[in-house]
Nucleic acid binder design. Structure first.
Lengths: 148, 148
DNA sequence: CTAGATGCAAACAGTTTGCGTCACT
DNA sequence: AGTGACGCAAACTGTTTGCATCTAG
């Protein structure tokens, strides 16, 4: 499923040091179904590496995310956010500052299924995040880029 | 923007008791832009209602969500979830048990913008959640429904 | 040899809970 | 009058940090 079969190579190509812990965490990650939380990863990695600490799992996952080896499922974990907008709409989400702005659902063509959903899933609605840089963060990134 | 202008009526139609705290929280909520967190709501409500407690704000927001007056922006707050799938895909999310399953992005026609995004927003990618009931939760809900 | 990774414990942030009191219906 | 809402403090869960030690490059 992954392009890199060799973890050592994967680390090198992303500028990361290769450690035993990282190897075991990564191997576990790609094998666990359903998008595990750090705690779940820790519980399983622990069985192979009894002395590992939860802090290391967190740090490693963040390192993987920053280097692009992994993604987080959603930019919205962290805190409950309230939506009082009852009209159909989607969210413009800044990947840097995490700000959320509404856009009307007419910004794009209605979503149309091409295939059936997996058997037994009872569809309710879509929630679409349009990820990118908000005007403020885009401007800052631009400046930083020019300065270099 | 809201259909109900009268909060007392809104409560009645959702089977909720009307209290001063709920009124102030609700008024604040619809006025605050950018999908505030409970803490942010608390900070502002406090200025009008100095004796209110954070716990009440949390309880009230949950009450509003359960009764359908509000929604949460995302079903994914709470804990970091890791995604090792580098292929374009979307997520089937169960609104009851919060389980997440991947579906290939070919389940529906590619998203096509109809209008431009707001000026200055630098688009990166979409993240689509397909919300509904997973097979297990759908089956349970069905049983419960028949039992009544 | 040295920068950076690990493990531990303590600190934090966000959220929930138990319980006595108070207020809507 | 009775059910449920409120306020407070304490408990909990998920996450981060500081620091001493160890290890990959």
């Amino acid at each position: 499923m992954q392009i890199h079969t060799d973890f050592r190579e994967l680390c090198r190509s992303h500028g990361l040091a290769m450690t035993h812990q990282r190897q075991v965490i990564y191997d576990m990650l790609v094998v666990m179904p359903g998008h595990p939380s750090p705690e779940e990863v820790f519980d399983r990695v622990r069985k192979k590496l009894p002395s590992i600490s939860l802090a290391t799992v967190y740090k490693t996952i963040h390192t993987f995310i920053e280097s692009g080896i992994l993604r987080e499922v959603s930019p919205h974990h962290g805190s409950l956010r309230v939506d009082d907008n009852i009209r159909p709409h989607h969210h413009l989400v800044c990947t840097t500052c995490k700000s959320i702005t509404d856009v009307d659902d007419s910004v794009f063509e209605p979503l149309r299924f091409k295939h059936r959903l997996p058997q037994g899933f009872k569809f309710e609605r879509f929630a679409v995040d349009i990820l990118g840089l908000c005007p403020q963060c885009a401007a800052k990134a631009d400046k930083r880029h020019k300065a270099q």
